[in-house]
Simulated scan of single mutants.
Amino acid sequence: MLVTSWEVSNISKFKYQSLKDHVYNYIAERIQNGTLLPNQKISENSICESLNVSRTPVREALIQMASENYLENIPRKGFIVKELDTKKKLDVFQVVGTLDGMAASLAVDHMTEEDITRLEQLVGQIDLAISAHSYADYQTYQNQFHQTYICKCGNDTLVELLKSLQNSFVRQIYLSEDKQKLFSVLDQMNREHKQIIELFKARDKTGLDHILKHVHWRIDYVDMI
């Protein structure tokens, strides 16, 4: 998963080149969770202050993102988040669903009671985030939910593929200015999380593969992705 905690004490442990990568991940996460929106200018000063880093690794990360066609560097204006087309987003979700279902089915034999309890705790935190209309918290906890079993799949290549897709700059959950609609949809997704837990308890590999591939990652609200 993408880095979500940016303590200065941890930053100091990274080598220079690695620091650029962590800046890259930080910006990617903010695009994915809706903090940075398409056509929005990225503030280099804000990133430097948030991560307590110099401008150099920030510029390097932004230049790399622009070279990968995720950002646009506009003269005298700076770096702007590019809007990905709907087809690209749908393609990514389709692949994520397939791989996530595979990861869950492979993880069944390695999930412990503590892992199941962790999933249940995260579902509870997601419910609280929905009640508080906290989109950022929902994003954080739902990422942790999926990562809990992805890490137990026992297939490093699969884990890396899912990580690569997370770095594709496609927002991982719905987003809308209609808050009532948004959190109603997120509530439905969390009900699916609860179904996923029950399938893990039943060690139902086929059921897990099906719900993640054909239900949980199916896009019913194209206007919200």
Rank of each mutant, 00 (worst) to 15 (best):
H146S: 11
I42W: 07
D209C: 13
Y16R: 15
N52A: 10
E68I: 03
L84C: 07
I211W: 03
Q17W: 04
T4P: 01
F79I: 05
F145P: 00
K152D: 01
N69Y: 09
V185Q: 05
M111N: 01
L128F: 13
Q94H: 09
L158R: 06
R218F: 13
D21F: 07
V3P: 03
I80Q: 07
G78F: 07
R191N: 15
V81A: 08
V222I: 15
V170I: 14
F169M: 10
I219W: 03
G34S: 12
K163W: 05
I225P: 01
A104L: 07
L165F: 15
F145L: 06
T157E: 14
D204E: 08
I126V: 15
E120N: 07
I130A: 06
N190H: 05
P38I: 10
A66Y: 04
K15A: 14
D21Q: 12
I63A: 06
E44A: 10
I126W: 02
K194W: 06
Q144G: 00
E120V: 14
V58Y: 02
V53I: 07
L90M: 06
K87Y: 10
T98F: 10
P75K: 10
I63S: 03
L186F: 11
L208A: 02
I74S: 09
I173W: 09
K181T: 10
H193L: 08
I219N: 03
M102D: 10
M111Y: 05
E72V: 12
S131E: 14
S168A: 15
Q139G: 08
K77A: 10
Y26R: 01
I63M: 04
T56N: 04
V53D: 01
E68D: 12
I225K: 02
K152C: 05
S184G: 13
K89P: 00
G124I: 02
S176M: 11
K194Y: 05
V3G: 00
Q40V: 11
L186V: 09
K163M: 09
K88N: 06
M189Y: 15
Q17N: 13
D209S: 10
H193W: 03
F200L: 14
Q125S: 12
S168Q: 12
G154E: 05
Y141A: 01
I42C: 05
